[in-house]
Write a protein that binds this DNA or RNA. Sequence first.
RNA 1: GGGCGGUUAGCUCAGUUGGGAGAGCACCUGCCUUACAAGCAGGGGGUCGCAAGUUCGAGCCUUGCACCGCCCACCA
Length: 802
Amino acid sequence: MEPLYQPQGIEDRWQRAWEDEGLYAAEPGSGRETFVVAHPPPNVTGALHTGHALQISVADVLVRWHRMRGFETAFLTGYDHAGISTQNAVERHLAEKGESRNDYGREQFVELVWAWLREYGGTIMNQFRRMGASMDYRRERFTMDDEYVRAVMRFFVHLYGKGWIYRANRIINWCPFHETSLSDLELVHEEVDDALTHVRYPFADEPESGVTIATARPATILADVAVAVNPDDDRWRDAIGREVLVPFVERPVPVIADERVDIEFGTGALKVTPAHDPLDFEIGRDHGLPEPSVIGLDGRMNENAGELAGLTQEEAGGRILDWIKERGLLEKRESYRHTVALCERCNSRIEPLISLQWWCSMEELKKPALEALGSRRVAYHPESQHRYAVDSLENAPDWNISRQIWWGHQLPVWECPDGHETVAETDPDACAECGSTDLTRSEDVLDTWFSSALWPFAILGWPEQTPELDAWYPGTLNTTAREIIRLWENRMIFSGLELMGDVPFRHVIIHTTVLAADGRRMSKSLGTGLDPLDLVDEHGADATRYGLLKMSSSQDVRFAIGAIEEGRKLANKLWNASRLVLGAGPAEGDSSPEAVEERWIYARLDETRREIDADLGAFDFAHAVDRLYHVTFDDFCDWYLEAIKPRLGEPQVRATARAALERLLKLLHPVMPHVTEEIWSHLPDRETPLIVAPWPEPDDRFAADLHALDRVQEARPVYVRSGVRPQFTDDEERIFEIVTKRDRVQGEGNAEAEIERLRQEIARAEGMLANERFTSKAPADVVAAEREKLERYRRELDAIGN
RNA sequence: GGGCGGUUAGCUCAGUUGGGAGAGCACCUGCCUUACAAGCAGGGGGUCGCAAGUUCGAGCCUUGCACCGCCCACCA
């Protein structure tokens, strides 16, 4: 064993060994209590980022802890086909060659995606392995596996049969590049500098007057069907019910009243364009207005734009503004900063368009899910996220589940020439309504999250009633990031309740968001990202896991390399402690603690075991790793090993030290699996690898010795500073002699300062105890503790006086 | 605009029902002590964001304010 612990080489050796020996494997029907984690499937083209690394550290610590405690642990994983994201990756690749998906056609393009995945996909699973994630990789699933596809089809047919999936023409977010609809959750918003144009729409019967509106998109004027004002707005009250002329097209439209119009904004008058704005769409539907469109799927002016057809919106807007200027209708044009919606994948500006899409009604699905959240059958950690989960589910609008991209699960919907819909899990032979055999399948694919929603049970074989499904549903917990709650957690919960009759898991751990060191979000585009594998290369997976867990305290935390370095130090410290213990010679014989320092370390280790159990049980990872650091450095190394060093020649001392080390390794294993397993392998006569060694049982035999070294520990700095030392018992005296052997007394003869310090403490304690309001109102144990302190200070003062 | 989190040592952060302000890193001093200099011992350094309140007592509880951040949001 070299003096410097180097994780490189050691870590991957153990990762292979654990997996090859089947120690990651989960088997249903073992009869043991289960601990099941259906880990969030990364995008199939994805690479490990810091969020993944933290997420997997959190889950793996819990999995390893439970595995050692004898649970049947199923840590399950796989890939998400990630519709738009994957298609976009392949399209970007094509763009580099000057090609687009349209050069291939749908069928060939999908083949291209599969080929792409075979070449570039699936790398992240090996990155999970490099983090030490003890997943059952044999059970890896992909949302495009045949079995999984069948589950998705079953889900669709089921919801359709209940009447909860339907088709409707509504305004949706349209990405002109991908030529697909997107949900609100797939957009990003960006501030842009634009212009706000104030235009007077003349009254049809009084052209010299009119209503002035404000717009940021003059091109949409052509599709105006009304002007709306707030009924409480005195400025425009008289205009309500009159007609104005839409510029350029000179179409008369009504002035209507609607309370959704913001009096404060612009002129207080809103031009209503139902086909190209979500708010206008709602107002239009409520007032029964027509919905003409002038912008096409490519984002340019369509055939309804007459002479402007084919122009870009900017060009058309310019032409319309010219027209308006010429007629003196332009009242004001001012610079205007506002946010616009962009496609999160390609950054194209989103067009709100009316389109025929498939929708999933939330009305019935969300009810049982809300009940499950309300009763905490699904509990959020931290609890503060619970309300957000409930709010977002309560307010969930109907879900647009259809997309017009090519990569994904094609809808199980067929249409005959007469326009009848047939919905079936597998290819139907004939139209369900008219019997026609001339059927065409819908070209739409499903929103990726529609299939993700089934993850916890589809990976177990649903809709087949498999042994895995029996054994592992419902699962135990799910770990994810905050922004995924609406996209995924809520949907897994309602789909699980609907199809399985129970929640998919009991706990949702919302882990910390690790920000870049400068406090900004980590992101590739900002250049603030960080490759966790670089950390693993340099410091080891153990140190990386330790550091990330140490950082995982509050909601957002800045990345600090110091935390990773601390983990590396801990691994190295542990390594060297074991060199001392193992290098001292054979250790046959009795390992029961005898000397006070031996009983003390056993008590400390058991206390730490209790703290770790409590911390991990409460998902407080940062506190757990803090305890592990201190028990290793302070208790085990600096006091226990130092105290027994002179007696390492005695077999019983060595045997006891090995037993203590063994316990320490167990406590550290869930967080730092590799270094602990490596050291464990150097211990003779191990019955099992550490990964499946039993977690330490509670052991209160030496609880009375938990504080046996307190006096010595407190006295040491006083002694070094002043040369003053109290009277000790024989045991304390022995240990004090050992640990202070090389200490240099710095202020010999300078007892006055220490005496003064004690006198101040005594005065403070006496003052508090003399306060009648304190002694009468403070809890009895607090007063008693204060009395004890006072006694102790007096004893110490007496000791120094001697 | 809404929700959530944060503000404690130079930096990153702990601080569990209110009761003597902590850790790691950095810095200073002394030690190459035969496990570890990626070590050991000791030390300096903080009006706990600001203000008011409750209390015998507030980093912790209440109210207000300021600032930072993350997420969400249809002001045309």
